[in-house]
């Protein structure tokens, strides 16, 4: 149907480059990305708004969190994002060998993130800190559980993409889907970057 896309062009990509620039994924995925990011932005704003009414309580509650755990999780997601970005690049060049492997590396980091989050929850609950201990912890559990849900959905996507890129993708629409899945994962990463700053670092 579209023979031009079956062979790599001069940039090594199986997708043709439109002259005005190429939308990552496709236009539709940006409905989801901007929608979800704006929704989280409202949650972040609510957190800071509630914070202004009890700064001392928020600061005291924040001291119960381990900055090292949050930092490790940030590094895990940054690293998984690197693997996924490289995996998407490999997939669009038709590299059926390294794309699935890179997706699996990304997935391994994601599983590490989930495990560490579970450990963090367990630690807090052991010390008797629960959702209604303080408004700070309502936000802590609310935001991180919601984000963790995104990590789980993203991990399923990474697994699916590691299977899908095992064979050569020739249709531009399939490569667009892989790029979109990658963008979703980077969004999960960047939401955590902000959550880490808000919950663990803001004074």
């Amino acid at each position: 149907m579209e023979p031009a896309t079956l062979s790599p062009d001069n940039t090594g990509s199986l997708r043709p480059e439109p002259p005005g620039g190429h939308i990552p994924g496709e236009a539709g995925v940006w409905i989801l990305l901007f929608g979800e990011m704006t929704f989280f932005a409202l949650l972040f704003g609510s957190f800071l708004l509630y914070r202004t009414s009890d700064i001392a309580g928020f600061t005291a509650s924040q001291a119960h969190l381990s900055k090292a755990v949050g930092l490790t999780n940030t590094l895990l997601l940054l690293t998984s994002s690197l693997f996924v970005a490289k995996a998407v690049g490999a997939a669009s060049r038709g590299d059926t060998g390294s794309a699935p492997r890179l997706f699996r590396f990304g997935l391994a980091c994601a599983i590490g993130f989930i495990a560490l989050k579970g450990f963090e929850y367990y630690e807090l609950l052991e010390r008797g800190i629960v959702v209604n201990s303080h408004v700070f912890f309502s936000f802590y559990f609310g935001l991180t559980v919601l984000h963790l849900g995104h990590v789980v959905i993203g991990s399923v996507l990474l697994g699916a993409m590691s299977v899908a890129t095992g064979k050569l993708l020739t249709k531009p629409s399939h490569i667009a889907l892989i790029e979109s899945g990658g963008c979703f994962w980077h969004m999960v990463d960047l939401l955590w970057i902000i959550i880490f700053a808000l919950l663990y670092l803001v004074e």
């Binding site: 995925v29 989801l32 609510s46 959702v131 609310g142 559980v145 849900g149």
Partner: peptide, 27 residues
């Protein structure tokens, strides 16, 4: 396809519902 993405957003968003079991106040 945009409906696919809109529906995917709806799916991702829907996981907020059960969290309400944990909370009596706030967002």
């Amino acid at each position: 396809r945009w409906m696919g993405y809109l529906t995917a957003w709806q799916l991702v968003q829907s996981f907020g519902g059960p969290i309400a079991v944990l909370f009596k106040t706030g967002i």
